[in-house]
Design a protein around this nucleic acid. Structure first.
Lengths: 254, 254
DNA sequence: TCGCACGGGTGACAATTGTCAATTCTTGTG
DNA sequence: CACAAGAATTGACAATTGTCACCCGTGCGA
């Protein structure tokens, strides 16, 4: 792996507080790999051998069952994924494929497990990270069970707008079909849901969303900190189920 | 709290490996409380001050939004819940109410947080516990997104049967309306789903489920270790017979 | 003992969501 | 630049799921 990656990784909440020595050891054991687009790099059910760190690109976490498939999360740099499976030394519950060419750093799970046994600070960070992940999925599940598809779309738009600094307009960070799947609906239904929201303060132009009437939108979305975050003291939504983050690409697009 | 509770608690994976001394200290800080049935003991959004340990009774974890409500889990003894919220010192994401009269032991969250800072074994147990919780909710979310309501009911019946030692017959551990809500459907829909399964190897008599044709049932349920567990190396005592909790892990944390 | 509240079941109907097919739009590539 | 492949949209239709109204039966308390 590149030396210039280390400071980036070190900034992650998971690695921020551990000793410099242990961090170095972990980094020694790690190696980087660049995957082309559309490659299924992790297959659900296989043993979890590596903690993955996204450095560049985009990865989709998804699950399949009987020919059906659903997007569980989309991961953007810089963040980690599949921490829980590594800890448990258990099979992956989700598959992962690159959406675009991606550079990923992989830390052997056994080194990971050895490290939080000997570095209490790292153990603490891991606890916090897992608690964040857990709460993140609980939020997702709440959304699926308590909101209709139209409300989920509205709430997603509210969240993204907030992440963009309460912007009245932003660019969807990923393909609509992925977003639809993540939100638990078909692409067709997603398309119709957005169209239906045009009478409630949302306009859409290609990948750009424009909020024309925030009040009306919120009346539909009913944004709720217990479902939409943010979580009090976390400035990071957690590794395994991130909201698609605001990134540089979007800033340029404004 | 009663002295005879301690050995029970000590058997939990979360408390099994910590030092006797630290365990005692935690227990000193704890106190027990008995709640009557139908009492909302935790309200979502409030600060998480206590880790709860179920000693006797039944508690429902649920979430509400805009007048709608959904059951997220049902907790049976002996187990803990709302670990994640305590760790993060963040608001509860779920509410809790007693289904029946329940005796619950409460450990102040600050004592908890102090303890895994000074007991590495406890920190390790917490990590494992959180990873289990996380994977449990991910499974739940996968079920909601990948299976139809009928399939969820069928899969639930398969799981319970397995937990009961592959019994051909078992008693539903909780009211059907709670089960329906947990599985993400209305009571009416649940009732119809079970009825529809009668042509696929399931008979029902009041609260008793009888599997008349396991093959046919599995053809519908498509049981999958990545959604229905068990998790590879878990030796959790969730397999004890008649009063099987309906979801062995899931309950932890919030 | 009588109600009566409540869980549970059922039918009719409505709303939501998914499926299929056709078309347009976008994007990447030769 | 043109073309091909795949994403997005749309309409018609089907399946699933929810809602409402009503019924039955049980269990608990006045």
């Amino acid at each position: 792996m590149r030396d210039e990656d280390k400071p980036e990784i070190r900034k992650l909440p998971l690695f921020r507080d551990m000793s410099a020595e242990n961090f170095e050891t972990l980094m020694q054991a790690a190696y980087a790999h660049t995957f082309p687009a559309q490659l299924e790099m992790i297959r659900q059910g296989e043993p979890a051998d590596f903690l993955h760190i996204m450095m560049e690109g985009t990865v989709e976490l998804f699950s399949g069952w009987r020919g059906r498939e659903t997007t569980m999360a989309v991961v953007r740099p810089v963040s980690t994924f599949i921490l829980a499976a590594c800890i448990k030394d258990a099979p992956y519950l989700m598959s992962a494929r690159t959406v675009e060419k991606s550079r990923i750093i992989m830390i052997p799970a056994k080194d990971l497990r050895a490290t939080f046994r000997l570095d209490p600070e790292f153990a603490m960070s891991t606890i916090t990270e897992l608690a964040n992940c857990y709460r993140s999925v609980v939020r997702h599940a709440k959304g699926l069970k308590l909101r209709t598809s139209r409300e989920r779309v509205a709430a997603y738009i509210c969240r993204q707008s907030r992440l963009a600094g309460n912007a009245a307009s932003f660019i969807l960070p990923i393909e609509k079909r992925l977003l639809a799947s993540y939100l638990g609906m078909t692409p067709e239904n997603f398309s119709r849901a957005i169209k239906a929201l045009q009478s409630d303060g949302v306009a859409i132009d290609g990948m750009r969303i424009i909020i024309t009437d925030p009040k009306a939108l919120e009346a539909i979305a009913g944004p709720d900190s217990l479902m939409d975050g943010p979580d009090g003291n976390s400035e990071f939504p957690g590794a395994d189920f991130p909201e698609v983050p605001w990134d540089a690409k979007q800033r340029e697009a404004m």
